[in-house]
């Protein structure tokens, strides 16, 4: 696998900044970004709800934002004021946050960084396939005691 590690890490830094900005600006509560680590795709853990954005153009890959119900519930309460969101609401929230994070990255990287619309799923679907030759970076974060992962995979 030929990977320009320096370039990969700089791209990951952009994702970390995008996620940090999202929480600090949108919710007024900072997130704590924990130490990112490289992960074997086959052992990748996903939380309850995951939003996935495909990346194409100059860079090929994907980014996942994965978190449990409690994080999405609190975001919905802050943004919409609904106390009792249902599963559909939680999934829409996962799609929304994935879209904003990836959109911010596109604003930084320009028009050759093309992102897909979010694809949201619950759990880990049996037919979830990861492309081969992908360098996977997991960025754990904590926001108001809720844990989440941003997973960046770039070829």
């Amino acid at each position: 696998m030929e990977v320009n590690k320096e370039e990969f890490e700089s791209t990951c830094r952009l994702f970390i900044e995008s996620v940090s900005n999202y929480f600090s600006v949108m919710t007024d509560h900072d997130s704590e970004i924990n130490v990112p680590f490289l992960k074997d795709i086959t052992q990748l853990e996903l939380k309850q709800y995951t939003g996935m954005i495909g990346i194409s153009g100059n860079k090929q890959g994907y980014v996942y934002f994965s978190a449990n119900q409690d994080l999405f519930e609190e975001l919905i309460n802050i943004f919409i004021g609904i106390d009792d969101p249902d599963t559909d609401d939680l999934m829409d929230m996962a799609g929304e946050i994935s879209n904003v994070i990836a959109g911010n990255i596109r604003a930084s990287l320009g028009t050759n960084f093309i992102i897909s619309v979010p694809l949201v799923f619950e759990g880990r679907p049996a037919d979830l396939e990861f492309p081969e030759d992908t360098f996977v970076y997991v960025i754990p974060l904590t926001w108001r005691n809720h844990q989440a992962y941003v997973i960046v995979g770039l070829q």
């Binding site: 996935m52 495909g54 990346i55 194409s56 153009g57 090929q60 890959g61 994907y62 559909d88 999934m91 829409d92 996962a94 799609g95 093309i114 992102i115 897909s116 619309v117 979010p118 694809l119 949201v120 799923f121 619950e122 679907p125 037919d127 979830l128 396939e129 990861f130 492309p131 070829q155």
Partner: peptide, 24 residues
Amino acid sequence: SIKTYGADVIQTKISRIEDGTRKN
């Protein structure tokens, strides 16, 4: 059909998974 704005190889490899929000 929805517009995917150019997402190609990677997208097609995982596109067998249905987007839950669209389904809902």
